[in-house]
């Protein structure tokens, strides 16, 4: 068994237990269920992180078009969409339990939905292009260009005074240390755990992509070896007699 994965599994047990054992938070309609933020906030942060990771590898691909960068761009997009989806799902549950409705017309909820849709659009673009080189370059360009609106929606838009004032989401609670100490410690722990989980997933996804590429290259090598030994392999033109 992979030692790192085993260690990650071992770490997950106390962190998951801590999320249940921490005292109930005050000021919520359903204090026991406020624990959802332990998973909701880290997932939202991780999705933003993967947006930046995808853009970073996209720039590397545009600088030097190698498929290994494209594999990383694809992996970051997939995991970004996964973490954004999880953040969305936990957010919707939280909204139902604490605020009384599955969907509030909350600007922050909507802006995060746009972030999720943006990543899904990137994946749709990848899926719609069959030529692997075109797919890689289109995705890279999309990831680089969409990073500006994504940063706007993730970091700028929710903090605009007119938005922050109308949102049910607290905007600076964690940054300003307004969170209960126990809650803060567990929140950091779950973030750390999820961060490690997603890094492990990212590495696995990249490895799978690279193995697919290696397998493809090996198949070609095998075909080359099985070629007729008298076949020179190279296709060159021959001179034609005049007026043939």
């Amino acid at each position: 068994m992979n030692f790192r994965l085993f260690a990650l599994g071992l770490l997950a047990i106390p962190v998951a237990l801590a999320t249940f054992l921490v005292p109930d938070a005050r000021g919520f309609k359903e204090p026991a269920l406020a624990r959802m933020i332990f998973w909701h906030v880290p997932c939202a942060l991780l999705s933003s992180l993967f947006v930046l990771v995808a853009a970073y590898y996209a720039v590397r691909y545009l600088n030097s078009p190698k498929m290994k960068w494209d594999i990383r761009v694809g992996a970051a997009l997939e995991l970004g969409a996964l973490s954004a989806g999880l953040a969305m799902a936990t957010g919707i549950l939280f909204s139902r339990v604490q605020w009384g409705a599955w969907w509030h017309n909350d600007p922050r909820q909507t802006s995060f939905l746009i972030v999720l849709l943006t990543m899904l659009a990137g994946l749709a673009l990848r899926g719609a292009l069959s030529d692997e080189i075109k797919r890689a370059s289109s995705t890279a360009v999309y990831c680089v260009a969409s990073v500006i609106p994504l940063i706007f929606f993730t970091f700028v838009f929710p903090r605009l005074p007119q938005i922050a004032g109308n949102s049910l989401h607290p905007s600076q609670t964690i940054a300003q240390g307004q969170l209960d100490t126990n809650y803060r410690v567990v929140l950091y722990a779950t973030f750390f755990l999820l961060f490690l989980c997603f890094v492990a997933l990212f590495r696995r996804r990249v490895k799978v992509g690279e193995m697919e590429l290696t397998l493809e290259n090996l198949n070609e090598l095998d075909t080359d070896r099985r070629r007729d030994p008298t076949d020179p392999g190279v296709v060159r033109p021959v001179s034609l007699p005049k007026g043939h």
């Binding site: 296709v235 060159r236 033109p237 021959v238 001179s239 034609l240 005049k242 007026g243 043939h244």
Partner: peptide, 11 residues
């Protein structure tokens, strides 16, 4: 068109 060719390559 073959009459124009000085080189030939059959694929």
């Amino acid at each position: 068109d073959g009459r124009f060719g000085t080189l030939g390559l059959h694929l």
